[in-house]
């Protein structure tokens, strides 16, 4: 369960002024549901997710994961959270097995349990061939599979995916997408951010549109279609942006 209430995150600028990256954002996500944060680059998606994962402290409002507050109960939040992003790096001098075990231990998972879960996942994702290879020798697909197992090794009830397919080839991206669906089927609460409209269309149970740090609209795709009269998500997005009167600027999407 993710509950975000009037969340504000500001960054200081060089001249002492403040820049609001996240401005009064509210939404929620339940178990067995994929909620998609949709917005152009720089809309505030990553910042929101970093606040949810306790990396950033909010300047206002609150965020809760499984009922735990991200500020005062950071430790419990991290225990209940799996985090995966597209540009996640790996420790090149470790093997995939060592890497996954390292994070499993940091999450206080018993070594035996780490082994069982890793074996299960490795069979599922067809990883046995490279589990004991150093990661500097792995392909990007193998690396992403390793990251997937790392993010779920402590079996968290909530998963956060920050543009997990960014920069990946189609086949690898498909693996990720099916993994995200798999999470939903296993009853996990999934928050997924992307700037690719098609991805949101295919995956999301509900969509939260973010622009310039604010929520433009949220609801099911069907609801949005009915409300705006557009079929295509691109058109729906542009419609909402124009409605708020904000400049579209030179963003490409």
């Amino acid at each position: 369960m993710i509950e975000v209430q009037s969340l504000v995150k500001e960054f200081p600028k060089k001249n002492g002024e403040k820049f609001r990256a996240v401005d009064e954002v509210s939404f929620s996500a339940a178990h067995g549901e994929i909620v998609c944060l949709l917005g152009v680059n720089g809309a505030g998606k990553t910042t929101t997710m970093r606040v949810l994962s306790t990396v950033f402290k909010p300047n206002g409002g609150s965020a809760r994961i499984e009922g735990y507050d991200t500020v005062s109960q950071g430790d419990m939040v991290r225990r209940n959270l799996g985090f995966l992003s597209g540009d996640t790096g790996l420790y090149m001098r470790l093997t995939a097995r060592e890497f996954i075990t390292y994070f499993g231990r940091l999450y206080s998972v018993e070594d035996q349990l780490i082994k069982t879960r890793m074996d299960e996942m490795a069979t599922l994702l067809d990883m046995h061939d490279f589990l004991d290879k150093k990661m500097e020798f792995l392909s990007s697909g193998m690396k992403q599979k390793t990251s997937i197992v790392r993010s779920i090794i402590h079996d968290p009830p909530v998963m956060i995916f920050d543009e997990p397919t960014a920069g990946l080839d189609i086949l690898t991206a498909r693996n990720i997408i099916s993994f995200v669906r798999n999470c939903r089927e296993n009853g996990k609460c999934v928050l997924f951010s992307t700037h690719i409209m098609r991805e949101a269309e295919r995956l999301a149970d509900r969509i939260v549109m973010i622009h310039n740090g604010r929520v433009l609209a949220q609801g099911t795709l069907q609801g949005m279609r009915t409300e705006t009269g557009f079929e295509d998500l691109d058109d729906i997005f542009v419609h909402y942006v124009k409605q708020t009167g904000t400049e579209l600027e030179n963003h490409e999407f």
Binding site: R50, S53, V55, L81, S85, T88, G89, L90, L106, S108
Partner: peptide, 17 residues
């Protein structure tokens, strides 16, 4: 080095303080 290789965030999100 961890910043450069984009591994720091993963570490910060883990349940180590």
């Amino acid at each position: 080095g961890e910043k450069e290789r984009h591994t720091l965030e993963t570490l910060l999100v883990s349940s180590a303080t």
